[in-house]
Amino acid sequence: MSVTEQKREYTVKDFGSDQDVRWCPGCGDYSILSAVKKVLAEAGVPPEQYVFISGIGCSSRFPYYMSTYGIHSIHGRAMAVATGLKVARPDLHTFVITGDGDALSIGGNHTIHTLRRNVDITILLFNNQIYGLTKGQYSPTSPFGKKTKSTPMGSLDQPIAPMAIALAAEATFMARTIDMHPKHLMATVKRAMEHKGTSFVEIYQNCNIFNDGALAYAQDRKVRAENVIELEQGKPLLFGKDMNKGIVSEKGHLKAVRIGEDGITEDDVLVHDEEDSESYHAMLTRMRYPELPEPIGVFRAIERPTYEDLVNGQIERVIERKGKGDLQKLIVGRSTWEVHEDEAEAGKG
C-alpha cells in the first residue's frame, strides 16, 4: 500500500460497484459481500489499492460487485493469477474469492502451492458443499452418500477437510467463519487481511437453492452454540449455550466433556493457541460435527517470510552484489570474434 496515500474515511458505498448483484435471493454470498465491504471501509485504504481475483462458480462473481480492481478468471486458477500479480505488485492488497469446487477440486493444486509459498494474499473460500452454478452436483466437501443430481444413489466420494489440507500445505494462517454470523465473519476477515502471508479462510455459506440447510447446525443461531466452538487466543475450548462444555485431550484424542462432571474442571480443558504445534492444529481441523463441535475463528497464525518478499529479496541481493544488469554485456556474452571488412565477401542473410 502506498504510504503517501492519504487516509480518509470510507463508507460501504465506496466499495460497491454499479453492477446489479445477480446471486439468488437468500444466498449466503450477500452477507459475505456486505461484511467484506464493511471491513474494507473500516480499513481506510482506498478501493484502487485492492484487487479481487476469483475463479469460476457462484462466489466467483464477487469481483464484479466491488468497486476495486478485479479479475474474474478461469475455473480453479484464481490463486495462480493472484500469485503472479502479488509477485509483480507487492504493494497491492490481493484477495482471492473462491468456492469448494473452485479451490478444492479443479484448482486444488494451486491451493496447495499458494499456501506453501506463503504469498501475501487473502483467500476467502465459500464452502456450501455443492456445485451451485452448474445447478446442483456434489462437491469435494459434500458428505459421503450425499444425494445430488449427479449422485442419485448417493455420493461415493469421501469429503475432504479444507482446513486439514491447508495445514498440510504449510499454511501460516487458517480460519473458519460463517456467513450467518456477521460479527464473527467481519472479525475473521479483518484478521485474515492483517496477516502477512497467505491467509486461508473457510466460510460456511448456505446455498438456499441446491443445498439449503446443509450447514444449519453451525449457521442457525438457535443451535450454533452447541455445535461450534469460537476459538479465542489464550482461552479454553469451551462451548454450549451456558459455556459449560469443553474439549479435553485424552491419549492424543479430543473429547467433549461437561465441566463439573466426573471431576472435570475448566483447568482440564485445552487452551487455544494460534501459534501452537501443528499436531494441535491438526486436531482442530479434524473436529467434525456431529461427533464434536466444529471450531470457528483463527485456527493458526504463524509468521514466515512471504514469497514475494523472498523473490524480490533475491533480486535485490544480486543487484547489491553485481550491480544492475548491463544489457550490452549480456548480449556480447563470454567470447566474441570479429570479421573485418576485407575478409567479408559472400554475405549471409
Binding site: 556480447v332 556474452g333 563470454r334 567470447s335 566474441t336 570474434w337 570479429e338 570479421v339 573485418h340 571488412e341 575478409e343 567479408a344 565477401e345 559472400a346 554475405g347 549471409k348 542473410g349
Partner: peptide, 9 residues
Amino acid sequence: HLPPGVYRE
C-alpha cells in the same frame, strides 16, 4: 567469409 561485424555463438 561472413559479413563484417562482431560475432558470438
